[in-house]
Simulated scan of single mutants.
Amino acid sequence: MSRYRRKKKNRAGRFSIACIVILLLAVMSVQIVRLYDKNQDYDLKEADLNEQLEQETERRDQIADYEEYIGSQEYVEDTAKSKLGLVYDNEIVFKEK
């Protein structure tokens, strides 16, 4: 083979390798952008779920406090006063007209 043909084959080989590398870089860039967007979505979902967790934890605490209140003597007295109209012997009841 002549020297000219070898250079021509070398150029074609280099060109094809350069095209493949550029194509791979383009594909990888697109994938990086997609993963970045997906990561942003997951961060938003995580923040939302953390907020929901805090709300549910607060609600659980409120329910526990209410359950404790229901079991107390104070609840029994309040219920008897409000629903049944019962009072202690030494209490004075003022009613609005």
Rank of each mutant, 00 (worst) to 15 (best):
A47E: 06
E46L: 06
E46C: 01
I63H: 08
E51K: 08
K38N: 06
D61N: 14
D48T: 09
L49W: 05
A64L: 14
E58V: 03
R59I: 05
E56P: 02
L53T: 12
I63W: 12
I32W: 00
Q62V: 10
R60T: 14
I32A: 02
E58R: 10
I32P: 00
R59G: 00
I63Y: 13
D43A: 12
Q40A: 05
N50K: 10
Y42G: 00
E56L: 13
D41N: 09
N39K: 13
A47V: 01
R60H: 10
E67R: 15
N39D: 12
L53V: 10
E51T: 02
I70N: 00
I32V: 01
G71M: 04
R34Y: 08
E67T: 15
D37N: 13
Q52I: 03
V33Q: 09
E46P: 00
N50W: 03
D43P: 01
E67F: 12
E46Q: 06
D65R: 07
D41E: 15
E56T: 05
D43Q: 14
D65V: 00
Y42V: 08
D43E: 15
D61L: 12
E68C: 11
E46F: 04
E68N: 15
E58S: 10
I63G: 07
E67P: 09
R34H: 10
N50Y: 04
E58C: 02
R60E: 14
D48E: 13
D61E: 15
L44I: 06
E58Q: 11
Q55E: 12
D41C: 02
V33C: 05
D43G: 04
Y36G: 02
T57M: 11
L44R: 13
Y69T: 02
R59Y: 07
Q55M: 12
E46K: 09
Y69L: 12
K38T: 06
E56D: 04
E58G: 02
Y66W: 13
D48P: 00
D41W: 04
R60C: 07
I70W: 00
R60D: 13
Q62N: 14
L53G: 08
D37P: 01
D65Q: 09
Y69R: 08
E68P: 03
K45H: 03
E51R: 08
V33A: 14
R59S: 06
Y42H: 06
L35P: 00
E68Y: 15
Y66A: 15
E51C: 01
I32H: 00
